[in-house]
Amino acid sequence: MALKRMDNVGIVVEDLDATIAFFRELGLELEGRATVEGEWAGRVTGLGNQQVEIAMMRTPDGHSRLELSRFLTPPVIADHRNTPVNALGYLRVMFAVEDLDETLDRLRGLGAQLVGDVVQYQNTYRLCYIRGPEGLLLGLAEELG
């Protein structure tokens, strides 16, 4: 049996509304919001009886999604938002953008901070890492030529 697709990337946040606003500004569309709760959901996550507010954000091409989650119960027990980029585990989500400078200007208005510098890789890409809402690490890439 073959893999069909990567369905979404999940990100746990404290402020769901602010995070939705940030990703909308980046260009993702809010597909929907819901509360997921109950024993059945806890069996999937291994957390038991849980209550989670979720928002599904879709990229403009319709192929990729972010599932933003805010746990009401059980409470969040660890915070990895400020780990350095060389920490073990998931690193970041990378987004392709049309105009890197314009995108950075818009996202800075919502608190985004550049991690290092905007760099150019050969004549192919301009790239950078930013810290978005709640310190989430994101990559931005502008294809050149």
Rank of each mutant, 00 (worst) to 15 (best):
M1V: 03
M1S: 15
A2S: 14
K4W: 01
R5G: 07
M6R: 12
M6V: 09
D7A: 07
D7C: 12
N8R: 08
G10V: 04
G10Q: 10
G10M: 15
V13G: 02
V13I: 00
E14F: 07
E14M: 05
L16I: 15
D17P: 03
D17Q: 02
I20P: 08
I20C: 04
A21I: 03
A21V: 00
F23Q: 05
F23I: 13
F23Y: 12
F23W: 12
L26D: 03
G27M: 07
L28K: 06
L28D: 05
E29K: 14
E29I: 07
L30E: 12
E31P: 00
E31I: 01
E31Q: 14
G32A: 04
G32C: 11
R33S: 00
T35C: 06
V36I: 14
E37P: 06
E37K: 10
G38D: 00
G38N: 00
G38M: 05
E39F: 12
E39M: 03
W40N: 13
W40M: 13
G42H: 05
V44P: 00
T45N: 04
T45W: 08
G46M: 07
L47R: 09
G48K: 02
G48T: 03
G48W: 06
I54T: 07
M56Y: 11
M56P: 04
M57A: 09
R58W: 01
D61G: 04
D61F: 00
D61T: 11
G62T: 08
G62M: 09
H63I: 05
H63G: 07
E67Y: 00
E67Q: 03
L68I: 07
S69D: 09
R70Y: 02
F71Q: 01
T73D: 14
P74A: 12
P74K: 06
P75A: 14
V76N: 12
V76L: 15
V76F: 15
A78Y: 12
D79E: 15
D79K: 04
H80F: 08
R81Y: 04
R81K: 10
N82M: 13
N82E: 14
N82D: 09
T83I: 01
T83Q: 08
V85Y: 11
V85D: 14
A87Y: 14
A87D: 06
G89I: 09
Y90M: 08
R92Y: 07
M94S: 12
M94T: 13
M94G: 09
F95I: 02
V97H: 03
E98M: 13
D99Q: 08
D101R: 12
D101T: 07
L104D: 05
L104Q: 05
R106C: 01
G109T: 02
L110K: 13
A112V: 04
L114N: 07
D117L: 13
D117P: 05
V118M: 08
V118P: 01
V118G: 06
V119K: 11
Q120T: 12
Y121G: 06
Y121P: 03
N123Q: 13
N123V: 06
N123E: 08
Y125P: 01
Y125R: 15
L127K: 02
L127N: 09
L127D: 02
C128D: 15
C128T: 10
Y129H: 13
Y129P: 12
E134V: 03
L136W: 10
L137P: 09
L138Q: 02
G139K: 03
G139P: 12
L140P: 02
L140H: 02
A141C: 14
E143F: 11
E143Q: 11
E143W: 05
L144G: 11
G145S: 08
